[in-house]
Design a protein around this nucleic acid. Structure first.
Lengths: 134, 134
DNA sequence: AATGTTGGTGTTATGTTATTACATCGGTTG
DNA sequence: CAACCGATGTAATAACATAACACCAACATT
């Protein structure tokens, strides 16, 4: 995916690092990758991430305390596909992002039935990808 | 829920603290609650939690880095209800645990289609409970 | 009884993730 | 110009989690 042009320098650097990585990175790993570009403190990374998360260009993996670039290549990106879910391989670290309307529907149904207003939904599978499971 | 009799002292103390709390607690919050009972170090809490998680008596909320007692009151507990999902109120902190076979089916279907072997599944909704949403 | 193994415990130190607080800088707007 | 806003830089600290090592009680084997 090409970065939008309206990113600031730090945001673009963080987004770039995540895009190149082709896998999840912790904020501190990102920091280390960007030291050569003038990054000195975690906050520089967290602030950029905060914006990128807002824009939907990056996702946070809660079960890993780390971050991935959104795997979508189109401008439309994830907002238009409902909730994002992740399958994370414990062995090779590969993350695949997917969407499932039926799951969205079930969660929406639950929320409606309980009067719960969901702001954010986390769905993460931890396990072994096909390559690593053999 | 009554604690099984086969818990060690530390495990029982941690389980008790979580059960009384009626809400999620971080490991360090648990530690503070148990100082009077002789707890001194985080590891004492983490070790007990590890066992309680194994036994299914406690769940970890990944998006909160904290822990709740399983809301089931029967011996059978959660293992027999498929994946556990949580609705977490950002305002009052209340957590409700639920199960949905349709979601399990969809996730299983995804996994099968990709050859992904899921070991653990995390489903967490963050938002406002009916009371707080008004 | 001696030995070995297993699982729980206690303690210190350290590693990893995230935020608070405060100062500054540059561009935009009234 | 002045006021403001968003981004940035820096230092310090808070919050979450694990590593390494020693000790001990329970139990099984010899």
């Amino acid at each position: 995916m090409n970065a939008p042009t309206n990113l600031t320098k730090n945001q673009a650097l963080v987004f770039d690092a995540l895009t190149r990585a082709e896998g999840p990175m912790s904020a501190y790993t990102i920091l280390d990758k960007l030291r050569d570009h003038g990054f000195r403190a975690p906050l520089q990374v967290y602030r950029a991430l905060e914006k990128l998360l807002e824009l939907g260009l990056v996702h946070r993996l809660e079960s890993l305390n780390s971050f991935v670039a959104c795997s979508h290549t189109t401008e439309a990106c994830c907002r238009h596909h409902g909730t994002v879910a992740f399958a994370i391989c414990e062995s090779c670290g590969q993350v695949s992002e997917f969407h499932d309307h039926a799951i969205d529907d079930r969660l929406a149904h639950f929320a409606r039935s309980k009067g719960f207003k969901a702001e954010k939904t986390t769905i993460e599978l931890r396990g072994l990808c096909s390559a690593c499971a053999g």
